[in-house]
Structures are given as structure tokens and as C-alpha cells.
């Protein structure tokens, strides 16, 4: 290589380096843009949130985006009732932020006086859900009361929205119904397990009573 050729090659490399320095680093910009908390809008965050819920894992990204367009975002103040026991159910709720406590109405009789009270059944947090039966039954009465603990945000889908989703996007509608069936079957299994435990407890109590009677 002669000196001229060497000069040309060096100039070319210098120019290339300076060009690369001047060029905008798009991937880096894209990363910062996406990492910015200000850039996170509702449209992007809801499908992302839905992706973390296990019953929606068979939804594609596009299907989750479509489903998210049918959800209502509602905010509840602390101690505010989300759904009340005995009311006609019309919506299914997914906890987007905050905590929800589920209570059931109970009665106890103390010294002949009947007293009504609410018993805590469970505490639900982000990515959990409740009220799914309302989408499957017609005008079903809610069987528990859900109360917001602290400010919470829930995503709701109501029956007309589900009907519209089935009409407009049958595949997404069918997948949502599949997810609902999965939730119901899980709840059913849970209830069956609890029933088994209760029955076992009952039979052990019965045997204890029989033993005591025999001893006496």
C-alpha cells in the first residue's frame, strides 16, 4: 500500500467515524422513550397488565389490545363499595391497582338478639379478579360485597360490552368466555376442596361424639 492509498483509507475511516458520531442513536432514544414514565399511556399499559393475568395467557398481543378497548377503568376511594351482596350483577372486575376486600353478610344470635355483620372472606390485590358470574348469568345476585382498601383502580367489562365483543370480534369473545370458564372451574375446584375438608371435619367430630357417648 503506498502513502496516497493509506491517506485515502485513513480519511475514509475518519469520515465514517464522524458520521457515526453525528447520527442519531434511534435504539437508544427508543429505549429512553419507552422507559419514561410520562410515555406510558393507558392503551399500552392495559394490554401489558392483562398479559400478567394467567387466565388470559392464551390471548395474542393483538387480542389483548382489542379486549382492552372494551374495558372501563374505574377508580374507587378507600372504603368505597365496588359491588354489594344481593345487588343484580352486571360486570366482571380486574384489579388494576390497589387492594379489594371481599366480605360476606353473616348473622349471629347473642342472648336472643340477632346481629348482622360482615365477615372477611378474602383479600384481593393487583392482577386478581372478581364478579365473573355476572357475565355468565342473567341478572344474577352478587353473593359477596367487595370493598376498596385504599384508593384502587379496577378494569370492568359489562354484559353489553361482552355481547358487542362477541359480535365484533368473535375470536376474542370466545377466548374471553374460555377464560371465564377457566375461572369458574377453578372456583368450583376450590369449593369442592373446601367441602371435602369440611366433610372430613364433620365426620371426625361425629366419630368423637360417638366415642364420648360410648365412654359415658
Amino acid at each position: 500500500m503506498n502513502s496516497d492509498e493509506k491517506k485515502i483509507a485513513e480519511n475514509y475511516l475518519k469520515e465514517k467515524e464522524s458520521l457515526e458520531q453525528d447520527r442519531l442513536n434511534i435504539p437508544m432514544l427508543k429505549y429512553f422513550w419507552q422507559a419514561s414514565p410520562l410515555a406510558t399511556n393507558r392503551k399500552k399499559s392495559i394490554p401489558k397488565f392483562l398479559r400478567n393475568i394467567d387466565v388470559f395467557k392464551h390471548f395474542s398481543d393483538y387480542e389483548l389490545k382489542t379486549f382492552s378497548n372494551f374495558l372501563h377503568n374505574r377508580t374507587f376511594a378507600s372504603e368505597e363499595i365496588v359491588i354489594e351482596e344481593g345487588d343484580a350483577g352486571f360486570g366482571f372486575y380486574l384489579i388494576f391497582a390497589g387492594n379489594i376486600e371481599v366480605y360476606s353478610k353473616r348473622q349471629k344470635v347473642t342472648e336472643g338478639v340477632t346481629e348482622n355483620y360482615h365477615q372477611l372472606i378474602t383479600r384481593l390485590s393487583k392482577y386478581e379478579y372478581f364478579g365473573e358470574l355476572a357475565l355468565l348469568e342473567n341478572q344474577s345476585a352478587r353473593n359477596a360485597t367487595a370493598v376498596s382498601k385504599g384508593t384502587s383502580s379496577v378494569l370492568a367489562i359489562y354484559k353489553p360490552d361482552l355481547e358487542e365483543l362477541i359480535d365484533r370480534y368473535p375470536v376474542v369473545g370466545a377466548k374471553l368466555l374460555q377464560a371465564l370458564s377457566l375461572i369458574v372451574s377453578r372456583r368450583f375446584n376450590q369449593v369442592t376442596e373446601e367441602l371435602k375438608t369440611l366433610k372430613d371435619k364433620c365426620s371426625s367430630l361425629e366419630s368423637q361424639i360417638v366415642d364420648k357417648n360410648v365412654q359415658n
Binding site: 372501563h72 350483577g89 360486570g91
Partner: peptide, 21 residues
């Protein structure tokens, strides 16, 4: 409809939507 739903108070939203529907 989705925008109007936002101004309906939480405790009546289900009932109002049911009646509207």
C-alpha cells in the same frame, strides 16, 4: 358511551348501564 360512563357515580354504574342497555 364509554366517555359518559366515566361521569356516572360508582354505586349506580352497573344499574344505570343495565337500564340503558
Amino acid at each position: 358511551r364509554f366517555q359518559l360512563m366515566k361521569i356516572i357515580p360508582n354505586n349506580i354504574v352497573e344499574r344505570m348501564y343495565y337500564l340503558y342497555h
